[in-house]
Design a binder for these strands. Structure first.
Lengths: 117, 117
DNA sequence: TTACTATATTCGATATTTAGAATATATTAA
DNA sequence: TTAATATATTCTAAATATCGAATATAGTAA
């Protein structure tokens, strides 16, 4: 794999490496929204939201379009939503494997099920 | 979406948000490798490699197993490789849209095709 | 023009990430 | 035991990311 491709991938990951930016992208899943709506729904400081949006723009994750007073944001390529979907399944898979593991531990030692330790 | 899921996703992204770590994950695509092999193939400083591996472990992206003198690393869940595949397609899609854009610009102004400006 | 609204940028403080040097630990070999 | 090998951790300095406060800009309304 080329260095350029690696750099590109790590830029995308870096762009998504913050819970607020994940939240923004998830809100844009249904379609474009003006910055103000994002700020309102996520209860963010205006400056903070604007900074996160600047990161998402810089990493080419979103695009913006100005309409009158407002700036509408949307996902640049919906392929990225697939990435989030894969991670959701991954998250739940790990969750259930953790639950299973805890259950196995509990079943192997039923006498201690109610004990705190 | 829950805060936990958002945090989980951004942790994964953060784990992958460095070209060296992308390179490590790509090398592990074919199967497990000892740390030394990764260091050799990527021509990394030993300490630097070890730090990146620690990040990948902390974010649960890889797992390690010790065998004698060596520590073998592997991808914890191959679903993550799908994520990288999606990004590769995304990368080439963006590349070709950039090329198309440049071609359109060139075609719209054929007289300036060879001019520097 | 002035005032208002929506958004972006800059600034300063703090926290996190990164690389490399040095050191530590664990395993095997002698 | 001691030496050698493989890997991890700690430390320091530099770079980067984050937040909130303040300020700037662009568009609209009066």
């Amino acid at each position: 794999m080329s260095d350029a491709l690696r750099q590109f991938k790590s830029d995308i990951f870096q762009g998504l490496a913050h819970p607020t930016r994940i939240a923004i992208v998830e809100l844009l899943r249904a379609g474009e929204l003006p910055a103000g709506k994002l700020i309102e729904k996520l209860e963010l400081e205006q400056a903070n939201a604007s900074q996160h949006l600047a990161v998402l723009r810089a990493k080419q994750i979103v695009v913006s379009r100005k309409a009158g007073n407002q700036v509408y944001y949307s996902i640049r390529d919906r392929a990225l939503l697939e990435v989030l979907d894969i991670l959701r399944r991954y998250f739940y898979a790990q969750l259930s494997s953790t639950v299973n593991m805890l259950q196995e531990v509990a079943n192997e030692r039923p006498q201690s099920r109610l004990k705190a330790h």
